[in-house]
Design a protein around this nucleic acid. Structure first.
Lengths: 205, 205
DNA sequence: GTCGTTGTTGACTAAAAAGTCGAAATCGGG
DNA sequence: CCCGATTTCGACTTTTTAGTCAACAACGAC
């Protein structure tokens, strides 16, 4: 049955959002999924595989949401606005996914982290990159485009994470929505400036 | 002697940046500091205290760097530019501190994380907030100001973290420097839009 | 209904890490 | 140099967690 596997994945998401990926125990996950510990090891080789699968699943979902949300947009500001909206919508009431998104990235800053989670993150960056490239009149060189994608993705998640610290009380998603317009136009400005600057090679010397 | 304590703190920073805070073992830290395990427990009650101290120390340093860098600036764009520059300078060649900064924040998104690390992060946000408030002509209401601080801090660290993923080869700090201007002016734009929008209470109804 | 396959179980073993403690070393004032 | 306070040490005990496995249950094909 696939049901058990699904139950384990969902339980893991919850436990990860409670204790963090690294401190989550296997028993805790199998307990929460209401299955024996052996069942966990029947379906997964261990925590690393579980983590890889969850992160991939989450990012694939996020990419799908972004592409759905941005289809039809033809100008930069429109794409940015819908891009941000897609993130807000995706993470709203799905805090566990945001924790995965954030902890996964945090893991990537380490020298020895989980193997195989960079790939989905790069795919995600490429998705953002592709969307922007499709609406930009002047297409900047690849490395610059990548930096812009980093900035866009970073801005959104960075705001989210700090907002989570400072406002336990107020509704994060709601305030985020109210900032959407400001975020989109400021990112448009960023793209405009960063996209037209001198390529780093030419600047040298 | 204070030297041993210092050695332990420095060793911990390194180990945290290698394995991550949660997976760092106490023996690993005391080994790297070239002291016995008992010595660790003589100086610290356990990992939580160590983490609290390191994060506080790092953020106090960052705050000091920011205040040093921004003193004398009188306009928004100048403050933003120096703010970003201070971050870049602070984290350059100090990857361990960036890992702490990122992992610490990651921990704050959890339901059960380390106790007592929110305070220094809030102090850091308040520092950014205060700097912006001092140069803004039209001072937005407190919650809006806080959101702006979140956005500024989030943008900077968010870009950093994604850049770390996608460009192991190129010098992150160098490219970051080249984006400084674009980042500052886009954040200025953000502040302008976010600061003048309707307060959320008034928008309701 | 029988039998092989697939899935489930949780007590058990083994490994790893935390935290303790008495002994030993170092330090510094007299 | 002596002594008491501080600091260091690492082997030891305890706790925690991963991962295994033999037995059991459910399923579905014939």
């Amino acid at each position: 049955m696939k049901v058990t596997r699904r139950k384990l994945l969902d339980a893991a998401r919850t436990v990860f959002a409670t204790r963090g990926i690294d401190l989550a125990r296997i028993d805790e996950i199998s307990d929460r999924a209401d299955v024996g510990k052996g069942t966990f090891y029947y379906h997964f080789s261990g925590k690393p595989q579980l983590v890889r699968e969850l992160i991939k699943e989450m990012l694939d979902g996020l990419i799908a949401a972004i592409e759905r949300g941005c289809s039809g947009e033809t100008d930069v500001i429109g794409v940015l606005d819908k891009l941000i909206a897609a993130h807000i919508e995706f993470f709203a009431n799905r805090w566990e996914d945001f924790v995965l998104y954030f902890q996964g990235r945090s893991d990537l800053t380490l020298q020895e982290g989980y193997q195989g989670i960079e790939t989905p993150f790069i795919k995600y960056l490429e998705c953002v990159e592709g969307l922007l490239a499709s609406v930009l009149k002047y297409r900047p060189p690849q490395p610059v485009l990548r930096r812009i994608a980093c900035a866009v993705a970073g801005f959104v998640s960075g705001y989210y994470s700090f907002a989570a610290i400072s406002s336990q009380d107020e509704n994060i998603d709601e305030t985020f929505v109210s900032l959407r317009g400001a975020m989109a136009s400021s990112l448009a400005r960023f793209i405009q400036e960063a996209g037209h600057q001198q390529p780093p090679e030419a600047a040298k010397g």
